[in-house]
Design a protein around this nucleic acid. Structure first.
Lengths: 251, 251
DNA sequence: AATTTTCATTTGTCATACGTTTAAAGGTTT
DNA sequence: AAACCTTTAAACGTATGACAAATGAAAATT
């Protein structure tokens, strides 16, 4: 592992890349201890703070973990689903919020992905997952629920549906998409009537999954997508009307 | 933004989290300049190296960028698809390689996701994307192509298919899944006959998409998934046989 | 033998200093 | 007055040295 002191990039960035490449290539294996910060500083011919900055970069990506003490040091971390999942949600959320992604595009992506695991979910869903869905449906029926709590429950419901496919890779990939949508969903104010409609569709989904009816699950997801987009459209229209009114009174 | 000096976590980790939360919450907007390192050190009542470690953590996630010079500093970075995509691929690749994900699970996830965008791709694919697919098919027909180059071409082909859906969010989510599979795919040695079969299926996919035939696209993807799993199974069987032989000669 | 103490190692944090980059302010020349 | 050069100050990048805190292992003690 070598670095170029004359490169335009930071030394810490170069060192981080070098170590990351070694991990990805398998030269450093899980739970293996890296040399101490002092040793790394010697090897790369830089100071300890520079090495530390590089290690912090790797720690931010959960590639290493550090331990203090006599037998401490930096260790190659086994990337777990939970960590990867958290990172993915953060990244996806920021990506959507920073790039003016339209509600329709995000919604289309989300339901396309969800429909992808519907057939598997209909076949493999566990009683536990069905119970989670029923519990969330019940929660969503509470009249005094805040809009945000309603959305959070919606996410939990859909995660149970996705997890029902019994494929961890699929769950991991979709979790990001479903959860990243939440801020966009939060912009919608749910009327009592629209909540009722959504609860009805959720119930239909749970029923279809209970019956292992893949086709009906798929159809219900299509209905739910259409209804969600209709709701968002109404909100957008209402805003546009309000803006127009304000314009006319000002003029 | 406050931190707890008595927490078990590193100060730099706490500071990074505080700033990240501010970005996610929208308190810090894109291109906004953060206070200088010295000012942050004063605000958080820590030293500059500690602040720098926190900033490097954020830089590793592409949340900020830094500039040197008189008007330099740390700026909130607009997370672009390309950056998010790179991070996602790294994370997904490591997740798969470190967690002994079976080929079948990864393969199932990949094709489920790909089938999710097949209908949209059949409708919206551009001539450019069709041309890319044809070009990759042609490349895959070259007999002197290495296995790795064949896999890389396979990835490009499937990315064109995914991009054909014309949904950036979908492309972003799927790119990780498709690309992360590549190391697993590389374990397969493609015989001349199996390459021929794959090229034929790819041609069928391109034809179906050219005809905007969603159903045929979907069916072909199912066939391709089945064939891919069959190939992987053969490789696994061959390995098992070899191991058994070795066992018997040793014993 | 069990317990306590000591000790060396390693990360976490701090203070300080200096080099490098960069843009803007100021001065000089045409 | 305009264009060009010089200076300067701000900010990051890097280095050095030091000390604190954690931690496990070795040594000493009971």
């Amino acid at each position: 592992m070598k670095i170029d002191p004359n490169s335009s990039k930071d030394l810490s960035a170069q060192i981080a890349t070098a170590i990351r490449d070694a991990i990805v290539a398998g030269d450093l294996i899980v739970d293996q201890r890296l040399p101490s910060e002092a040793e790394l500083a010697d090897q790369f011919e830089v100071s300890r703070p520079t090495v530390r900055e590089a290690l912090k970069r790797l720690a931010a990506q959960s590639l290493i973990r550090t331990q203090r003490g006599a037998t401490g040091g930096a260790f190659v971390n086994r990337l777990r689903y939970a960590e990867a999942y958290t990172q993915q949600v953060t990244t996806s959320t920021l990506l959507l919020s920073m790039n003016a992604v339209s509600f329709d595009v995000a919604c289309e992506a989300r339901y396309a992905l969800e429909r992808a695991c519907a057939p598997m979910s209909a076949q493999r869903r566990t009683p536990d997952q069905l119970a989670t869905m029923r519990a969330e449906i019940h929660r969503q029926s509470q009249p005094d629920l805040s809009d945000e709590a309603f959305c959070a429950s919606d996410v939990t419901f859909h995660r149970a549906l996705v997890d029902g496919a019994g494929n961890k890779v699929l769950s991991y990939q979709l979790a990001g998409a479903v959860e990243a949508m939440q801020p966009l969903m939060n912009m919608i104010t749910f009327s009592a009537r629209s909540r009722e409609a959504i609860v009805a569709l959720h119930t239909e989904l749970a029923d279809a999954l209970t019956d292992k009816d893949a086709a009906r699950t798929d159809q219900t997801l299509v209905k739910l997508e259409a209804y969600t987009r209709e709701l968002a459209q109404n909100v957008a229209d209402a805003r546009a009307r309000k803006a127009a009114e304000k314009e006319s009174t000002t003029a």
